[in-house]
Amino acid sequence: MAAFVAAFVRGLAGFGMAILLVPLIGLVIRPGEAVVVSNMLGLLIGLVGARKVWNVGEKSAGVIGGLAMLMTPLGLLALFATPPAVARVVIAAVAIAAFLLVLLPAKPGHAPGGVETGLTGVAAGLLTGFAGMPGPPVVPYYLRRPIPREVARASMFTVFLLTSTASTAAALALGLASWRDAVFALLLFGPVLIGNHLGGLAFGKVSDALWRGFVGLLLGVSGLLALVRLFG
């Protein structure tokens, strides 16, 4: 059920699956394994409609995603070198930070330069490896600008596909992923596929203002949920 809901949110908002899923399954399995499973799911669902997403999104998504791919292995190594209790705290803090970043005032007419784009890619890669959450730097990068929501959503999808690919490949190459992680991801893929499809249908029926409001609400709820789960 958690996988279905998280995937529905992804299909509607353009992100959020990892933010919702990692803190939850990280309480059942080790945080490192939860991140690996989440990134495997991100890769599988990201391949669905990948060509269409690439054509709609900004070219900046390729730059951010490429840099993130280079940094993801470093974040993954840091995760597996961190005690599980500390990792859970950091992952919860990342979810809260995502909400706070989106609350910052929008920048009408702002066009990010090379430095901002590069830093977004680096941060996305490190957070992909450590928390399975490239969203905190990527979501504000696109949502705080007056671009069409279809472009913002497609751009985020592109970045997340690239980061999921890098994280999965790095986990396999470094011996940090096991066959059990792959089986777990495959078992969850059915609910994820259905939830993502239904979320995509809902995306086409909501207004831009409602969509952006939902994105902010999602980040706030996910951060609160992570804290409740952490201390409860």
Score class of each variant (00 low, 15 high):
111 A>L: 12
106 A>H: 07
66 G>H: 07
102 V>S: 09
48 V>H: 09
88 R>F: 00
61 A>M: 01
188 L>W: 07
154 A>E: 09
14 G>H: 09
182 A>H: 11
196 N>V: 10
42 G>N: 05
79 L>D: 02
48 V>I: 12
223 G>N: 03
26 G>I: 00
198 L>S: 12
153 R>D: 06
209 A>F: 12
150 E>L: 10
215 V>D: 11
133 M>T: 03
88 R>T: 01
167 S>H: 05
112 P>L: 00
107 K>W: 03
103 L>K: 10
147 I>T: 09
89 V>Q: 06
189 F>D: 07
87 A>D: 02
79 L>V: 02
86 V>K: 11
131 A>V: 03
135 G>D: 11
81 A>Y: 07
187 L>K: 14
64 I>F: 06
59 K>V: 10
59 K>S: 14
124 A>Q: 02
177 A>R: 09
198 L>E: 15
146 P>G: 01
100 L>D: 05
115 V>A: 15
34 A>R: 03
124 A>W: 04
183 V>L: 15
54 W>K: 04
215 V>P: 11
15 F>N: 05
163 T>V: 13
141 Y>L: 07
151 V>R: 15
65 G>A: 03
232 G>N: 09
110 H>E: 09
179 W>N: 14
31 P>C: 03
21 L>I: 04
125 G>E: 04
29 I>E: 13
203 F>P: 10
169 A>P: 05
129 G>T: 00
180 R>H: 13
48 V>T: 11
31 P>E: 04
56 V>C: 07
63 V>M: 11
5 V>I: 15
61 A>D: 00
71 M>Y: 06
82 T>F: 11
52 K>H: 11
72 T>N: 08
54 W>N: 06
99 F>R: 02
40 M>I: 14
161 L>W: 04
142 Y>A: 02
147 I>Y: 10
129 G>Q: 00
112 P>C: 00
29 I>M: 15
39 N>M: 15
160 F>N: 10
40 M>Y: 13
39 N>K: 12
130 F>V: 04
24 L>E: 10
65 G>H: 04
68 A>R: 01
74 L>W: 12
75 G>I: 02
169 A>W: 08
24 L>P: 08
171 A>P: 06
54 W>H: 12
82 T>I: 06
147 I>K: 14
134 P>S: 05
229 R>G: 15
96 I>L: 14
189 F>A: 12
194 I>G: 10
7 A>S: 15
149 R>T: 11
24 L>F: 13
136 P>L: 01
217 L>H: 09
151 V>H: 15
143 L>P: 06
69 M>Q: 04
160 F>W: 10
158 T>F: 12
65 G>N: 01
54 W>S: 05
204 G>E: 12
65 G>Q: 04
121 G>T: 01
38 S>K: 09
70 L>P: 00
29 I>A: 13
159 V>N: 06
34 A>F: 00
55 N>I: 05
